[in-house]
């Protein structure tokens, strides 16, 4: 198992363990603990990015990708949840790998929120979009993600998963009421938004996924960006 996969696995495990500890031991402070667990889960991924020595061209390119993703969110703001942001993050991750995917997703969320307004949702969105990118990069060499159908399925799943991650905090804040009714209620009220997100992902990835991957791949090869190097600080 390579290091990159390990970092993502550690992130997921910490998140899951944090949630488990939160619900098991610390009665009543689920919200706080979930926030702490989520921060801890992102830390190794950020540290990995920090320790990587990047060429200025690579940073500029990652920033451009994040800006296009964030711009998609701001430009499409009148249409709730119908945004090409996840699409850009997924495509970037498919070409440049999970680390780049994570950082593009997380920074796109952070930067667009600096325009749209920060709130308690910012870290959750950073985590969710970061994970969209990280998981897409993780699967990028599989046959599944190279096919149109596979990409669409991936986008569909993440459309819903993204909303579900954002729902976690509202579930955790009412531990006594926790049960299938609360779960149903929470997911029903976010269903329309999740569906719109999923449909947007499927449409964008289905129509333009492969051509964008080719486009970015050409740029990656032409300028030799983010090739695996062993140089580390």
């Amino acid at each position: 198992m390579d290091k990159r996969r390990r970092a993502i696995l550690i992130a997921v495990i910490i998140m899951a363990a944090g949630l488990a500890v939160a619900s098991a031991i610390w009665d009543g402070h689920y919200l706080l603990l979930s926030a702490v667990a989520m921060t801890l889960a992102m830390t190794p991924l950020f540290v990995r990015f920090e320790r990587r020595r990047l060429e200025p061209r690579e940073i500029a390119m990652l920033a451009a990708l994040a800006a296009v993703a964030a711009l998609g969110r701001i430009a499409f703001a009148p249409l709730p949840s119908f945004k090409p942001t996840s699409f850009v993050v997924i495509v970037a991750a498919l070409v440049f790998g999970s680390e780049a995917g994570f950082i593009v997703g997380a920074v796109a969320a952070l930067a667009s929120n600096l325009f749209l307004g920060q709130g308690p949702w910012t870290p959750w969105q950073m985590f969710a979009w970061g994970m969209v990118g990280a998981s897409a990069g993780w699967l990028r060499h599989t046959r599944f993600m190279k096919s149109r159908i596979g990409m669409c399925a991936f986008g569909l799943v993440w459309g819903f998963l993204f909303g579900w991650i954002m729902n976690v905090w509202s579930l955790l804040s009412l531990p006594d009421a926790f049960g299938w009714e609360l779960v149903l209620l929470t997911y029903a009220q976010s269903f329309y938004f999740d569906l719109a997100h999923a449909v947007a992902n499927v449409l964008f990835l289905g129509f333009f996924g492969l051509s964008w991957v080719r486009l970015l791949d050409r740029i990656r090869k032409k300028y030799g960006l983010l090739e695996s190097r062993s140089v580390r600080r």
Partner: peptide, 23 residues
């Protein structure tokens, strides 16, 4: 705390209005 990520975020922030004009 995170210098390289911050530089990345700064550049993204600068690109957003630029790209909006370009768009």
């Amino acid at each position: 705390v995170l210098p390289q990520t911050a530089l990345h975020a700064w550049m993204t922030l600068r690109f957003i209005p630029l790209f909006a004009r370009r768009f």
